[in-house]
């Protein structure tokens, strides 16, 4: 199997603060890979660096075997799309769902827009009744579905997911996670998913990387994590914390 995404020695620096300190990573095509860590671990920065939203100071990123330059071209955006964490902030407040979905099609000059919008909305479980609504007329879960539809409409092969459910209620989270899994299966997508929640990452991903302070702590498979076969204390702490509060008295 070839690598959909391979990252080598990636560094990101913000005003002399090293947010990423030489991270390397390889995601096979069709895999679902998780990035776990606490705030400040650099997991979201890694995602943004891949998307080209923050500049890389050094290191290389290759998508489907093609090394990326500092500027992303249009072809890149048809391969890689992203779903943001906050469904309240990721939809333009003055645009209808229809307009939001039309924009990527217009940029890339697709002619069969009508059909694609219809299909994308159906795919994320929103009927046509949602098509002409504004973001403020949607619930958090519905907004996130629209964001997923927008990411899918260009038919990318890689989806970057930045804590896609952390702003949602537990029951809505389950629906969105199920939707993402179903889409991945149907479209044979590659996922790179960031989360602070170990349970979500083990549920969604086959392999994962634990990060801390801009560095990789360890690489694990989901089954290693489930079997508590971890080598680093930091991971062990995270694992213990995810099991809830234990009274020590």
């Amino acid at each position: 199997m070839n690598a959909a995404l391979s990252i080598d020695g990636l560094e990101v620096v913000f005003d002399r603060f090293r947010a990423l300190k030489g991270v390397s990573l390889e995601v096979k095509s069709g895999d679902s890979f998780g990035l776990v860590g606490e705030s400040g671990s650099g997991k979201s920065t890694l995602l943004k660096a891949i998307a080209g939203l923050v500049p890389a100071a050094s290191g290389s990123i290759a998508v489907n075997g093609k090394t990326l330059g500092t500027r992303r071209d249009k072809a890149f955006y048809r391969e890689v799309q992203m779903v943001f964490q906050d469904p309240y902030g990721s939809l333009h407040p003055r645009q209808t769902v229809d307009r939001l979905l039309q924009e990527p099609l217009a940029i890339h000059g697709f002619a069969d827009g009508e059909k694609r919008i219809q299909r994308a909305l159906d795919e994320v479980g929103l009927g046509t009744g949602f098509r002409f609504r504004y973001a403020h007329q949607l619930s958090g879960g519905q907004r996130q579905r629209v964001a997923i539809a927008r990411a899918l409409i260009l038919e990318p092969s890689i989806l970057l997911l930045d804590e896609p459910t952390s702003a949602l209620d537990a029951s809505v989270q389950a629906e969105v996670l199920n939707l993402l899994e179903e889409i991945r299966r149907r479209r044979k997508l590659t996922f790179l998913m960031v989360s602070h929640d170990l349970a979500i990452v083990t549920h969604m991903c086959e392999r994962l990387m634990v990060m801390q302070n801009g560095e990789a702590v360890e690489n694990l498979t989901a089954s290693q994590l489930i079997g508590h076969r971890v080598t680093k204390d930091y991971t062990r702490n995270l694992l213990r914390a995810s099991e809830g509060f234990v009274r020590t008295a």
Partner: peptide, 17 residues
């Protein structure tokens, strides 16, 4: 710097657009 502008950047839209 809002996410919805980043999302449009990720669509490949030009700064002009």
């Amino acid at each position: 710097n809002s996410d919805y502008i980043k999302a449009v950047q990720l669509m490949g839209a030009s700064p002009f657009r």
